[in-house]
């Protein structure tokens, strides 16, 4: 039997069908812009409104974290990379070069915040996790943080 006649089982791999990269200033006015950009990108999948709103909310939380915590409301850049795959999954990576998180596990606990407790309620990561299919965070103190989230659109 020659090679071409052999039946080869191939695992179906999802293909990357689109990608965008955005760099924003860490200005709170850009929180809305970030949401709008990612929503416009994911709209190419003709998603249901609720799922799109979920992703907008998760992106808003991540970008807000960069502004409030990573850069402590000072100047910095926020790097957003969104990818769309053939299985209708969208991944969004939001990266900063801010102060970094000393204890990621602790930071992700509900109601934990290093912000002014009167108005920062420490639910950002909880919201991200609740409204996406998964969130992973990598960080180094003094270097920055990268938040990676995925959402599969039905």
């Amino acid at each position: 039997m020659n090679q071409t006649e052999k039946k080869v089982k191939r695992k179906t791999k999802k293909a990357l069908i689109n990608e965008i990269k955005i760099t924003l200033n860490s200005d709170s006015a850009n929180e809305s812009l970030a949401r709008t950009c990612i929503a416009a990108f994911a709209s190419q999948l003709d998603p249901c409104i609720d799922q799109l709103a979920d992703l907008r909310c998760a992106v808003s939380e991540a970008v807000t974290n960069c502004i409030v915590h990573a850069y402590k409301e000072k100047k910095g850049k926020i790097y957003i990379n969104a990818r769309m795959y053939s299985d209708r999954t969208v991944s969004v990576r939001i990266t900063d070069k801010g102060c970094g998180i000393p204890d990621v596990e602790r930071a992700m606990q509900p109601l934990f915040t290093t912000g002014s407790t009167e108005e920062r309620c420490g639910m950002g990561f909880s919201v991200m996790e609740s409204f996406t299919d998964g969130v992973s965070v990598s960080s180094a103190v003094g270097k920055g943080t990268s938040v990676f989230m995925t959402k599969k659109f039905e």
């Binding site: 949401r35 909310c57 939380e61 807000t64 108005e119 920062r120 309620c121 639910m123 950002g124 919201v127």
Partner: peptide, 16 residues
């Protein structure tokens, strides 16, 4: 039209 956890903070602060 939209709310994230900052809205939660706003509501909780006013409640306080």
């Amino acid at each position: 039209r939209f709310m994230d956890s900052s809205g939660l903070g706003l509501i909780m602060g006013r409640y306080s």
